[in-house]
């Protein structure tokens, strides 16, 4: 407790004169994209994702075509909620992981995936190939709208995902598939 109290006392003595909390009303007047689906698709592709427009009925066929019968597939479309008994090792050799996003952000091509959509926190990162299903009506304009639409603190954790994992740490050369998935597809379904 001594460290805490000392730190707070020191901050109190050092901080500059109070400045007001900025009014964020301006963000509601920022530019809006006409076609959210098209802008989302462009942003997600820029981030290295594949984007496909389809219908709810087309999802199963696409998922089947994305993995061979002998490959390990985990689909959140078949099960409900977090699986607390699952361990990371259960997902270590997953070839394909399928889940459904809560919202998408046109500006960045990112999809919001709270823990309840992932079954296990590591599933999204250990699978080689990831498919995210997202309803086209769930796409919002920009990052401001995204945080207005979700409750970041609702679940233990949550992640905005834009594209497959990547690195440019060797000579700034972009390589897809650093630690996480090597490929990521967003299926934008009507509805």
């Amino acid at each position: 407790m001594r460290a805490r109290d000392e730190m707070l006392t020191a901050v109190r003595a050092a901080k500059p004169a109070a400045l007001p909390r900025p009014d964020l009303a301006a963000v509601s007047r920022f530019a809006r994209a006409e076609n959210l689906v098209a802008v989302f698709a462009e942003s997600a592709r820029l981030a290295g994702a594949s984007v496909l427009l389809t219908t709810r009925g087309g999802v199963d066929a696409f998922v089947d075509s994305a993995s061979k019968p002998n490959e390990r597939r985990v689909s959140m479309l078949d099960v409900d909620g977090v699986h607390h008994d699952a361990t990371a090792d259960d997902f270590a050799n997953t070839d394909l992981f399928v889940c459904e996003g809560v919202i998408g952000v046109a500006e960045t091509g990112a999809v919001w995936l709270p823990l309840s959509r992932l079954r296990h926190r590591a599933a999204l990162f250990l699978a080689t190939n990831v498919i995210i299903v997202l309803e086209q009506s769930r796409i919002v304009n920009n990052v401001h709208d995204a945080y207005a639409a979700i409750d970041v603190a609702e679940e233990e954790c949550g992640v905005f995902v834009a594209g497959p994992s990547k690195t440019a740490d060797i000579e700034q050369m972009l390589v897809i598939g650093a630690h996480g998935p090597k490929a990521l597809t967003v299926l934008l379904v009507e509805g």
Partner: peptide
């Protein structure tokens, strides 16, 4: 930083998962 529209992962942690 890198000219990306967003980083690939923007991860939020609020609570420990069970265990």
């Amino acid at each position: 930083g890198t000219g990306q529209r967003a980083t690939v992962y923007t991860t939020h942690v609020h609570r420990p998962v069970r265990g």
